[in-house]
């Protein structure tokens, strides 16, 4: 197994009076896609937001390439090479698609060839380049959100439920794009409820419940082990087939 790019070590997170994460231990190997599964309210989104520094861990440590980033603020974490695609996509609807992309390129003007490659992955980005991002459809916004995250090469991309609420045809194209993205050196942590997509994309998998990781291992092993699937599914993946 390659070396871990990201590790969470006994992370606890409180949101206001609520205790959401109860000691999350997670190790994400460099390269490939790490799936984070679990039912609603299991703590997946909170885990991503804690990594990003949007919620502060009250205990435990988040390490990126061996360095403790727990106490860094969000912009500093982002500048370490971690991109974030939030559940609500975080599109700036008042800005155009082009402006959304420009702002995401923090190191200056976006690289032309990379932009072309992104536009091939997500053709609507090219089509609606000058349009207001607020006029995009839900699927297009989701594409823009992912495209924005990869406008510059990132070491780690955290993606929160990119298929939520999308039509099957668009899920298929999103899966295809993420598969291509996987071919680059980037590491992806993907929160998903859609098991078919998880199986198609994931290299490793971690399953969460009640603010803890209850299973971690290879995606292939989980996909092959019907009994384990049954057990975890009964617990956390019910009705998400």
């Amino acid at each position: 197994m390659p070396e871990a790019i990201l590790t969470l070590d006994g992370v606890h997170t409180h949101i206001g009076p609520y205790h959401i994460l109860h000691g999350v231990d997670l190790s994400v190997p460099e390269g490939g896609v790490a799936m984070l599964l679990g039912r609603n309210g299991a703590g997946k989104t909170t885990t991503l937001r804690t990594i990003m520094g949007l919620w502060k861990a009250s205990r435990g440590a988040v390490r990126f390439r061996g360095k403790d980033i727990t106490s860094l603020d969000t912009p500093a974490i982002s500048r370490k090479g971690i991109a974030f695609v939030p559940e609500d996509m975080g599109i700036f609807t008042d800005l155009t698609v082009a402006e959304n992309m420009t702002l995401a390129a923090t190191r200056g003007a976006p690289d032309k060839r990379r932009l072309d490659w992104i536009c091939d992955l997500f053709p609507p980005i090219r089509t609606f380049w000058e349009s207001s991002a607020g006029t995009l459809s839900g699927g297009q916004k989701q594409m823009l959100s992912v495209a924005r995250a990869i406008i510059e090469p990132r070491d780690l991309i955290l993606i929160d439920e990119p298929t939520k609420g999308l039509a099957p045809a668009i899920i298929k194209s999103m899966t295809g794009a993420l598969k291509q993205l996987k071919e680059t050196e980037t590491t992806i942590v993907l929160v998903e409820q859609n098991f078919a997509m998880a199986r198609a994309l994931g290299d490793t998998v971690a399953v969460m419940d009640d603010g803890r990781i209850i299973h971690a291992g290879d995606m292939a092993a989980l996909a092959a082990d019907a009994a384990l699937q049954e057990r975890l599914m009964g617990l956390s993946l019910e009705a998400h087939q």
């Binding site: 912009p75 982002s78 991109a83 974030f84 700036f92 702002l103």
Partner: peptide, 24 residues
Amino acid sequence: TRIGLLVRAGVENGEMVEALGYRI
């Protein structure tokens, strides 16, 4: 201008501006 775009983006979603690496 970039600053102006950041201000407008920040008005809508300051958290995302931070996640892109800018200090709001």
